[in-house]
Design a protein around this nucleic acid. Structure first.
Lengths: 191, 191
DNA sequence: TGCATAAATGAATAAACATTCACTATATTT
DNA sequence: AAATATAGTGAATGTTTATTCATTTATGCA
């Protein structure tokens, strides 16, 4: 045999891609730029990925699986409703905030020509445990008895928005701010 | 003189651009496609706009001014706080929903290489009357005394999210749903 | 240590795309 | 109705960007 492929290089490519997408969107994403930012030659990208589309789609799947892990790794549906809710809210928030790059990539991916239709459907399953939790809260008469889609929008919207804000502005998200945001989310949903 | 430039053509170009950005994002925006969708020859685009960048930036300014008008045309700060608030919330919602295409364009524009730095600053002024309204609500002890940035996030986030949802899913936004969404927003903010 | 094999390189090529331009069509003016 | 000035056209051109490939470099194995 000979040299092995290098996992660190793959990570470097992913990281470079996310960085560029954050700065310039998908329309600013160029293979030579990715290579440069990853400290590689252009051709090297084609050893690890068949082409640009493959790179983008593989990265998407990668992020999705990380997202899954981050969101539900600590989740325990057996504790009281409000604790569940709080745990998931914080997990979702941190997921988005800590990895703004990834959040922006996903946002852009979903409006790009790379998006495959099947992917769209898969995405919904990711939130299945959350839908279940909301149903439970309605049954236990703790939260408003509204369409789960609407409730979810109310929950994720401010988080996504805040994530965006935290990057462009100098709005620092302290623990206190976080708790205030959670309180507003809760007040909006609770009966 | 001779033929006049045709305002309908400019509108067709704008409309085609918005449509494509909605479907494929900025990275899917190609001059030949714009021309085709607008029912024009490629070259015609260059009669109305210097180049692609000019087209995109001009459209941005256009949308921004429409947004301004739509948001504040009915606004009357002399009525009671909750009425003001409700009026602006609905106005902002309709603005986003009715013109999903425009909302997506703006979202993408702000992550594109076309974004000029000055534009970023101007954008904030657009919301000045809203900041004032929030300050008033805090002073009158009607809403929570939190950072306006945070309050705004809580308000606009779900609206943006819902707008996105309304396109991709078959989630129909009836008057009842709208009122539920408003109620949640209000419950989140009120003291 | 040296051979075999695959990774890595980056200049060369191909493909995609923005832009131009020689030409045509049409409206306005006299 | 002819003259003319400008809009409109789309194939041709130039530029940017994705991809390939001949060559070099590094690694694992005998």
């Amino acid at each position: 045999m000979a040299r092995d492929k290098d996992d660190k290089k793959i990570e470097a490519i992913y990281s470079a891609t996310l960085q560029i997408v954050l700065q310039s969107g998908f329309s600013g994403l160029k293979m030579p730029d990715i290579a440069k930012a990853a400290g590689l030659a252009t051709g090297t990208l084609y050893i690890y990925f068949k082409n640009k589309e493959d790179l983008v789609n593989t990265l998407y799947l990668q992020l999705k699986s990380r997202k899954m892990k981050g969101l539900f790794s600590q989740y325990d549906p057996s504790v009281p409703f409000r604790s569940c809710f709080r745990q998931l809210w914080y997990a979702y928030f941190k997921l988005n905030l800590v990895n703004l790059q990834e959040a922006v990539f996903l946002e852009q991916y979903f409006r790009s020509p790379y998006l495959q239709n099947e992917v769209k459907l898969q995405e919904k399953q990711l939130f299945l445990p959350i839908y279940e939790l909301l149903d439970r809260g309605k049954k236990e008469q703790i939260i408003k008895n509204l369409d789960s889609e609407l409730l979810l929008v109310q929950l994720t919207g401010p988080i996504h928005e805040m994530t965006r804000l935290s990057y462009s502005e100098d709005f620092s998200i302290t623990d206190a701010v976080l708790e205030q945001a959670f309180q507003m989310a809760w007040d909006g949903l609770k009966l």
